[in-house]
Amino acid sequence: MAADPVSGDFTRMLDATMQALGAVSAPAAGADGEPAEPPAGEAADGQVRAELGPDGRLRSLWVEPRLMRLGSEELTEHITTAVNAAIDAMRGATTPPQAGDLSQLREQLAEVRDSAVPRLGSFLAALTEAQDRLARGGPR
């Protein structure tokens, strides 16, 4: 039996949706295909470094131990500068931070595609057959 155009369209739609979800939930990659560096910012000539996680929250903060001799006001200014630079780097990135893990949704869509689409095709074929029988004047 030939593939039904409706179920074929449905399959293509689900495949496109799964591909889009895969692109959204995949880790961001740099130009060379390697995972992109997390957004980070520096201050005090690299002596303070802030790194953000994929959710946009502060992942790590590194301060050169010698800077601990500074007064708390000056040290916190450097930290604030580094964190703000990391936020600016995140905002300037081409890929926004991920809202969450979409792998479970992707798996569910794959399951729908693999199980529901064949059933939908069978259902549509049965409807078409019933319609043909009715058009010929009743059950046969």
Rank of each mutant, 00 (worst) to 15 (best):
P97H: 01
A28Y: 03
D55L: 00
Q131C: 06
V48M: 08
Q108C: 02
R69C: 02
F10Y: 11
E111N: 07
L75K: 10
E129T: 11
A3N: 03
E34R: 15
M13V: 10
T128V: 07
E77L: 04
D114E: 14
T94S: 12
A86T: 00
G137V: 09
R106Q: 14
R119K: 12
P97W: 07
S7V: 05
P54M: 01
L102K: 00
D9E: 08
V112S: 03
W62N: 05
T94L: 14
A28C: 09
L58T: 05
D88F: 04
M13Q: 13
Q98A: 10
D4W: 07
L120H: 08
G71C: 03
V83G: 00
A89Y: 07
G100F: 02
L75S: 04
P38Q: 09
G92Q: 13
R12C: 07
P39C: 07
S122N: 09
T95C: 03
D132I: 07
E37L: 15
T76S: 14
L52N: 08
A50R: 07
D114M: 01
M18F: 03
E129P: 00
L21A: 03
L109T: 03
V112P: 01
R140G: 15
D101M: 06
A23N: 12
E73M: 07
A89N: 13
A125C: 00
D4H: 13
L58F: 05
A2Q: 09
M68A: 13
E111Q: 05
P97T: 12
A20N: 08
V48H: 02
P35E: 10
Q47T: 04
T95G: 04
M13I: 06
F10G: 05
L134E: 12
P97Q: 11
A20V: 04
V117P: 00
E34A: 14
P139S: 06
